[in-house]
């Protein structure tokens, strides 16, 4: 029972960490960044390089953020910016970028599966249950990400401008907010977060050129269900991630893998705004 609860909480934390970057980009730019999976892969390889160089595995997180952020800047400038008015085309173009990133990584690192060193090993005893220390640490990391982003959005001038762009971009522009800059910074931040997510999941799985893709669809569905709110994203991760854990343990892991996508599709059919308040 405790083990399952911990599974649900840690799964939700991982999903939250993976989806925040996508949510930020979707909220501000109203486009789905299908390169998110590719950027996660990039973050995974950044973690691999960091540990292979013998550095502290925790350094993988800032390294991955740097990788993701720099590539994200280039993507925003050259691919996403011309497609502001064609949101469906932006999905396709970013998917194309995902292919490019995957192939470049394959050429550079080969197709093989590799493993990065985990920053935390062993288990912790919690309420009589010994549980993976790293998975527990992820809950803290996801909380820091969520609180940090909320503070950025609620507490800074940039956050205020970003929220203004989310609510009404035309009006925000009319008030002198440089919405192009807001979009650029948002996409960069979203890409950096994708890289961080890639680095965070590497100790749980392996590193390979298509590691990000399976996460993409789940993250995408969670974001659609949550609208543009970090709070409803947390709720969606807990509910749908919890459902995934329960289905996977009690029925079959294959069905568990489908749970988030199918449930989200049904939720959106019944309530188009999903878990968002309006």
């Amino acid at each position: 029972m405790i083990g399952q609860t911990l599974d649900i909480v840690t799964t939700a934390a991982i999903l939250y960490a993976v989806a925040t970057g996508l949510l930020l980009v979707f909220g501000v730019m109203k486009i789905i960044n299908f390169a998110h999976g590719g950027l996660m892969t990039l973050g995974g390889y950044a973690a691999l390089l960091t540990t292979q160089a013998g550095l502290n595995p925790w350094l993988a997180i800032p390294a991955a953020a740097l990788f993701g952020g720099v590539v994200g800047m280039a993507i925003e400038r050259f691919v996403v910016r011309p497609l502001y008015n064609r949101p469906l085309d932006a999905i396709l173009a970013t998917w194309g970028l995902s292919i490019i990133i995957g192939q470049l990584i394959t050429i550079a690192f080969g197709r093989g599966v590799q493993f990065a060193e985990s920053p935390l090993n062993g288990t912790l005893d919690l309420w009589g249950e010994s549980y993976s220390a790293y998975r527990l640490a992820l809950v803290g990391i996801a909380a820091v990400l969520g609180i940090g982003l909320t503070a950025l959005l609620q507490g800074t001038r940039l956050g205020l401008e970003t929220r203004a762009v989310i609510m009404n971009e035309d009006l925000a522009r009319g008030l002198g907010i440089n919405s192009g800059l807001v979009r650029f910074l948002t996409f960069t931040l979203g890409s950096a977060l994708a890289g961080v997510a890639g680095a965070l999941i590497t100790p749980l799985s392996s590193v390979d050129p298509s590691m990000g893709v399976p996460w993409l669809v789940n993250a995408f569905m969670l974001v659609l269900v949550s609208g543009a709110s970090l709070v409803s994203l947390l709720f969606a991760c807990l509910v749908l991630g919890g459902a995934q854990v329960l289905v996977a343990t009690h029925f079959s892991p294959v069905l568990g893998g489908l749970t988030i996508a199918v449930l989200a599709a049904i939720i959106l059919r019944i309530r188009p705004q999903g878990f968002a308040r309006d």
């Binding site: 011309p82 396709l92 173009a93 194309g96 970028l97 292919i99 490019i100 192939q103």
Partner: peptide, 20 residues
């Protein structure tokens, strides 16, 4: 194999952005 996929991916992005 990989170079070919890379070319197709690049061409695809180029077409979507520049020649919709």
């Amino acid at each position: 194999p990989f170079v070919w996929q890379l070319i197709i991916g690049t061409l695809f992005v180029l077409v979507i952005v520049a020649f919709p």
